[in-house]
């Protein structure tokens, strides 16, 4: 097969797999949220509801239809953006999500902008001098950061920076985007707490990818040709590690999701993850469904990007 065709074929296959996975996830989410004990209509109207009122609500929520029809109806709604009504506060789910999405994107964007350069830089520096003191220290430090729970870092940050030093507020009731100072005051702690793990992940994976390349015989050959320093990194290490590094970046950024769930809870940050956790606590199923699908979509996109980056790392395909 010609390389260009191979690339297209791979992309198609990967996208098809992602779409299939999303479909399977939607089925699983729907099934899981439909097998919950009790009746949604009953839950909404409470115990004093009359049978007539219950029946009317069931009909309006299409609960009288078979599950397969309801699934298709629901799936259609997901695709067209009509994701139903919240059972708890009776507002359209899309509206709830719409009000929280910018905050979450802001948090994720700020964390990405903060983590990627620092993680890459640390990774490259420690790969350049393996077994140096710097490398050993960062290695143990990042191992520890990756190993500890997100809420440990979050609570520690609150204790040190908000309570003892009083630099930042401990709670973020809404991110203040109106002033630069307000923005930094409200976003710094959540972003910092979220960043610890991401930076550590990016750094470790970048270091591993670079070290793998630096061990190759062509790097030794380049040294024996008199090639050293920046030229070695620029022409030998980086081009061949680019794919694995991009892969590492995408994988690390997918940790934003899990991290956000914890961090938004600690700081009471009005983002999507907090919305989801609250929805699970109140068993607000339409909201759980919509948030879950949104998170899975984001995760799948990052995962697919990671795989594509990994494939592009193959010089045989990239070269042509």
């Amino acid at each position: 097969m010609r390389p260009a065709l191979a690339v297209t074929g791979f992309l198609l296959k990967r996208l098809l797999f992602a779409a299939g996975t999303l479909l399977a996830v939607s089925l699983a989410v729907f099934a899981a949220t439909e097998i919950l004990p009790g009746d949604v209509a009953g839950a909404v109207l409470g115990q004093s509801a009359t049978p007539e009122a219950l029946a009317a609500l069931r009909a309006s929520m299409h609960l009288d239809l078979p599950a397969s029809v309801r699934y298709l109806h629901w799936l259609g709604g997901m695709v067209t953006g009509d994701v139903g009504h919240s059972l708890v506060n009776n507002r359209p789910v899309s509206e709830l999500i719409g009000s929280r999405l910018p905050n979450s994107l802001l948090l994720a964007g700020a964390a990405t902008a903060f983590c990627v350069p620092i993680g890459l830089l640390l990774g490259i520096c420690s790969a350049m001098r393996p077994t140096s003191v710097f490398d050993r220290v960062t290695s143990v430090a990042t191992l520890s950061i990756v190993a500890v729970p997100e809420f440990f870092i979050g609570t520690l940050a609150v204790l040190v920076f908000a309570v003892n030093l009083r630099w930042f507020p401990a709670l973020t009731l809404s991110p203040r985007i109106d002033s630069v100072e307000g923005f930094f005051r409200s976003m710094t702690l959540p972003v910092l707490s979220l960043s610890g793990i991401i930076i550590a992940q990016i750094m470790r994976m970048t270091r591993a990818a670079l070290l793998d390349v630096l061990r190759r015989p062509y790097v030794e050959m380049a040294r024996l040709k008199g090639v050293v320093g920046a030229r070695l990194v620029l022409f030998y290490a980086l081009p061949n590690a680019l794919g694995p590094i991009a892969n590492a970046l995408a994988l690390s950024l997918s940790h934003l999701l899990g991290g956000a769930i914890i961090i938004e809870t600690i700081f009471n940050f009005p983002g999507l993850a907090k919305l989801l956790v609250d929805a699970v606590s109140t068993r607000d199923m339409p909201l759980v469904q919509a948030c879950t699908m949104l998170f899975c979509l984001a995760y799948l996109i990052l995962g697919t990007l990671a795989d594509i980056a990994g494939m592009l790392a193959n010089p045989r395909l990239r070269a042509s």
Binding site: T21, V25, A32, L257, G258, L276, A279, V280, R283
Partner: peptide, 14 residues
Amino acid sequence: SVPSLLFGLVAVAA
């Protein structure tokens, strides 16, 4: 390809 904490949340919800 489902984030683990999300998986856990949905399972607990269900």
